Amino acid sequence: MIRHIVFFSARDKADLARVRDGLKALGEIAHHDRFEVCENGRVDPMGNDVDVVVYAEFASWEALAAYKADPIYARTTAAVRPLRELRLSADFESTI
């Protein structure tokens, strides 16, 4: 299983809901086995710069590539990019 985790911060906190809701459109892409968009709970006293987390699971690297190649992905990126400050991404193969 491939896990895809992306962290975002809103450039302007007034746009946080627009960032979150914009990213939820990625859930319409059919290639994932699990997909979530959540706001950071901010329970850690350090490193609360992250506002929104995208978490997805894919059966294979090919499924992740198909997800990123979908037109919804490009539209979502174009809509959210101007609203975000930080974007950190990690993709890894899990054995669990």
Rank of each mutant, 00 (worst) to 15 (best):
I2M: 12
I2C: 05
R3Q: 07
R3A: 08
R3T: 08
V6Y: 01
F7V: 00
F7E: 02
S9K: 11
D12T: 07
K13W: 12
K13P: 13
K13D: 13
D15F: 04
L16R: 07
R18C: 10
V19K: 02
V19Q: 01
R20K: 11
L23K: 00
L23P: 00
K24Q: 15
A25C: 13
A25H: 15
G27S: 06
I29Q: 06
H32I: 06
D33P: 00
D33C: 11
F35P: 05
F35G: 02
F35Q: 05
F35W: 07
V37D: 01
C38K: 02
C38L: 14
N40Y: 04
G41T: 08
M46C: 13
N48A: 14
V52H: 03
V52K: 00
Y55R: 01
E57G: 09
F58L: 04
A59Q: 12
A59K: 14
S60C: 10
W61Y: 05
A63C: 06
L64A: 06
L64Y: 06
Y67P: 07
A69V: 07
I72C: 13
Y73P: 01
A74R: 14
T77V: 08
A78M: 02
R81T: 14
P82F: 04
P82G: 03
R84F: 09
L86E: 01
L86S: 07
L86W: 04
L88T: 01
S89I: 00
D91W: 03
E93Y: 04
I96K: 11
I96E: 14
